[in-house]
Amino acid sequence: MSTSDEDNWQEAALAPFFDAARRQAPTPSTDLMARVLEDAEAAQVRYAAATRPVAPRAGLWARIRQGLGGWPAMTGLAAAGLAGVWIGLALPEVLPGLEPTAGDYVVDIAPDLALETGGGF
């Protein structure tokens, strides 16, 4: 027997079984369908919980800015800080109407250190 004759014989022998399987429509039991639907609903709940958008947490600087009152308060604070630095660095030689003395401008908290006053006192 050749290979094609053997294949034809096998197909002919199995044909009634295949025809019977095609005629009988498979119907799942109601218990199986209930379990499948229950699993599908559980998967949908897990998927919805996993894809729910989470609001990003504000960073440290954003929380500090918000705690101080936002950008308007931050600009006022920055302006006051810069004015303080400028006034501290640009100390006038003599205030109008005052005689300059060594203690007028500087409070010496470390008398062991030589502290120059810039005014030549």
Rank of each mutant, 00 (worst) to 15 (best):
R63F: 10
M74Y: 11
D19N: 15
T30M: 10
T27D: 02
G67N: 09
G119W: 02
A25T: 15
P111A: 00
I87W: 07
A25D: 08
L82I: 14
R65V: 00
D112M: 02
L113A: 13
L89M: 03
A15M: 01
R23H: 12
R57A: 15
G70E: 08
P26K: 05
A78E: 11
G67D: 05
L113Q: 14
G67S: 01
W86V: 14
T51G: 00
A34H: 13
A50G: 09
P56W: 11
E99R: 06
A34C: 03
G76Y: 02
A55M: 08
P16A: 10
P96C: 11
P72C: 01
G118T: 05
E41R: 13
S4A: 15
I109N: 12
G97C: 02
D31C: 07
A58L: 08
A114K: 15
M33Q: 13
P111S: 02
G103D: 06
E41D: 11
G88I: 09
A43W: 01
P26S: 10
R63W: 05
E99Q: 07
D39H: 12
P16I: 03
Q66I: 07
I64T: 00
G103V: 00
I64Q: 01
L14I: 05
A50Y: 03
M74F: 02
R63T: 03
P96A: 02
P16C: 08
F121P: 06
P92E: 11
A43R: 06
E93G: 04
L115V: 15
R65P: 00
V85N: 08
G70D: 03
L60E: 06
R35L: 09
A62L: 06
P92F: 09
L98Q: 04
G67C: 06
V107M: 14
D108N: 15
D5V: 12
P100H: 11
Y105W: 14
A110H: 13
D5R: 15
A15R: 05
T27Q: 00
A42R: 05
M33P: 07
D19R: 14
T75M: 10
G59Q: 02
E116F: 15
